[in-house]
Design a protein around this nucleic acid. Structure first.
Length: 572
RNA sequence: CGGGCUGUGGCGCAGCUUGGCUAGCGCGCGACGUUUGGGACGUCGAGGUCGUCGGUUCGAGUCCGACCAGCCCGACCA
């Protein structure tokens, strides 16, 4: 492409409120434009990158036997009602009506539709299958943000495995796991695979791929020593053993004005250090009140609570609801003797004695609480949030907490959707079995943004060759100079003939502008052709990463570029 | 949904407190000329329903109200 004929609207002034670097650089470089909150145009440059990312994903999906198709994004609401997700997905699901007043939704993921396609499978002999598409997904996000990192309309590669049994599912899952590692590495990411919560998708095992970045929204826990890594929504840690001594007598005592864990701990350090208190929280989960118990110095990880109950919706209780339920205000709450309410407790409380907790009467607490004796725990579940420095459950070394971008997520779904839609096949014995599904997603544009977050410097983007909009830019220093121009044109056609994706900067601009623009938009190789070099039969080769320059003899330039590009085209 | 902020040529902003007549600045854009190995300069020029609606006023970009949109901080996801 000739730059003079291309639409590459670079901007010198960045959007002032662009928080994420990728957002700023993609806008400045003329890759994307915002239309509305969470709605972006891919300009020619952006679309080229997107297509390259899709190409990598497609190659790796096909390599594991994936078959690409395209499903509708406009779905009858009825289908979503059938899988129960019409309600489950809440406000995030875009809903609309057609002219006949029929309820429709815009697809936010497509387990349902693929399960319906699976109705055409009848025998275990038809399995396994890996089906996928790359298509638009719609999500009415409460808060789109950070440019392409969190949007309402985006391209997702979503694939689904269909298997007759658990080993089949495991195999399909592992294939995806490996394919995902290759994809991310090929596009220039160092995404880490971590244990994750399955959330609203349903399913058992799940792994997220997280690219370390402060622009991200996910917190990841990793061990400094071993291979333990998990999303904070799932992460666990080892706690030092506690010796409370002998169980004692349950006793009420007055605590006027002491409404917080800290206040109580300060007033009664002997019996009520934060780690000797029971923190009692009241939530409303899917409409039902639930009491959540944690050690006083621990914080609740809400996703764990959702997962423990298999809940779709969660909120903290209102003060008046709490008063109706327990008869006291927050600050004096507890679960001792409470009946008829679901009580979840964190394992850090298991077996603890001589604990302190609220007595469900304002300004009164209990001491000498023996958890197993005094509290009727309905369900024990990992609920607390891991913090930095706690110890790894696998090896005992310290855990680190860091922030990243979720670029991919793979789930073992099970039979939820096949059962809902009746996707059964006959097994070897002629028995009808629900197809076991797995579901695997990658956000394409988010991937593009993550690449930029991970590959840039103060001058702009540094695209890996594998996803660069152009692999080489030829910067013509003096377009008006006949001989210079002729040399540039010659290199241009040679590179094109060699199959290189090349951009010829033939704009009538000063050199400084061209250098700056080529660095901003991040083309990995630049060949500078100017009268000075041409006079000596050399051109200047610049590698974007590091901006190191060297003069290359005219006759060798094309070969050097082709070699460089081809060595990095399939990943760095 | 709660909290904070913003809306003025394509982009980035000033003007608003203290209404006043032709609404400015930088970048970008067009023409001409001089320039051209790191974001040039001169001259001329094009381009704006001041987010929308309503109100106050002789007069509203400026004051008041409602609404809309966008951004940022908190609860969700590729």
């Amino acid at each position: 492409m000739r730059w003079s004929e291309a639409h590459i609207p670079t901007l010198r002034d960045a959007p002032a409120d662009a928080e994420a670097v990728s957002h700023k650089l993609l806008v400045q470089g003329g890759f994307i434009r915002q239309l509305a909150a969470g709605s972006y145009t891919m300009l020619p440059l952006g679309q080229k990158v997107r297509l390259k990312v899709e190409g990598i994903i497609r190659e790796e999906m096909n390599a594991i036997g994936g078959q690409e198709m395209v499903l509708p994004t406009l779905h009858p609401a009825e289908i979503w009602k059938k899988s129960d997700r019409y309600d489950l997905m809440g406000e995030n699901l875009f809903r609309l009506k057609d002219r006949k007043d029929v309820d429709l939704v815009l697809g936010m993921t497509e387990e349902e539709i693929f399960a319906i396609l699976a109705l055409e499978l009848f025998s275990y002999r038809d399995l396994p299958q890996i089906w996928y598409q790359m298509h638009t997904k719609f999500r009415d996000e409460p808060r789109p943000k950070s440019g392409l990192l969190r949007v309402r309309e985006f391209t997702m590669k979503d694939s689904y495995t269909l298997d007759i049994d658990k080993p089949g599912l495991d195999a399909g899952f592992d294939k995806h796991h490996e394919a995902y590692k290759r994809m991310f590495s090929r596009m220039g990411l160092e995404a880490v695979d971590v244990e994750a919560s399955s959330g609203a998708m349903g399913g058992s095992e799940s792994i997220e791929f997280i690219q370390r970045s402060d622009a991200g929204e996910d917190w990841v826990v990793t061990c400094e020593n071993c291979d333990y890594r998990a999303n904070i929504q799932k992460a666990v840690s080892a706690l030092p053993d506690v010796d409370d001594g002998e169980s004692g007598e349950l006793t009420r005592f007055a605590t006027p004005g002491l409404r917080t864990i800290n206040a109580l701990a300060e007033a009664h350090p002997d019996i009520a250090g934060a780690d000797r208190q029971i923190k009692s929280l009241v939530y409303v989960i899917d409409g039902e009140p639930v009491i959540v118990l944690l050690r006083g110095d621990h914080e609740l990880q809400e996703q764990k609570l959702m997962d423990a109950i298999g809940a779709a919706d969660l909120r903290t209780s209102l003060p008046e609801e709490i008063r109706d339920l327990l008869g006291a205000d927050p600050g004096s709450l507890g679960a001792v003797g409470v009946e008829g309410v679901r009580i979840l407790a964190d394992p850090a409380l298991e077996g603890r004695v001589r604990m302190t907790t609220g007595a469900n009467e304002d300004d009164w607490h209990y001491k000498g609480v023996d958890v197993s004796r005094d509290i009727d725990v309905t369900q024990w579940a990992e609920l607390r949030a891991v913090t930095t420095g706690e110890k790894c459950v696998k090896c005992g070394h310290s855990l680190e907490l860091w922030k990243g971008i979720e670029v991919g997520h793979i789930f073992k779904l099970g039979t939820k959707y096949s059962e809902a839609f009746g996707a059964f096949v006959q097994d070897e014995d002629g028995e009808s079995q629900p197809i076991i599904m797995g579901s695997y997603g990658i956000g394409v544009e988010r991937g593009v943004a993550a690449v930029v977050e991970a590959n840039h410097d103060e001058n702009g983007i540094i695209w890996p060759v594998s996803v660069a909009p152009y692999e080489v830019v030829i910067t013509v220093v003096r377009v008006d100079e006949e001989s210079t121009r002729a040399v540039a044109e010659d290199i241009y056609s040679q590179l094109r003939d060699a199959g290189i994706d090349v951009l010829l900067d033939d704009r009538i601009e000063r050199p400084g502008v061209k250098f700056a623009d080529s660095e901003l938009i991040g083309i990995p190789y630049r060949i500078t052709v100017g009268p000075r070099g041409v006079a000596e039969s050399v051109v200047e080769l610049t590698v974007r990463r590091g901006l190191e320059k060297e003069n290359v003899a005219l006759g060798e330039a094309v070969a050097a570029l082709v070699d460089g590009v081809e060595r990095h085209r399939f990943g760095i």
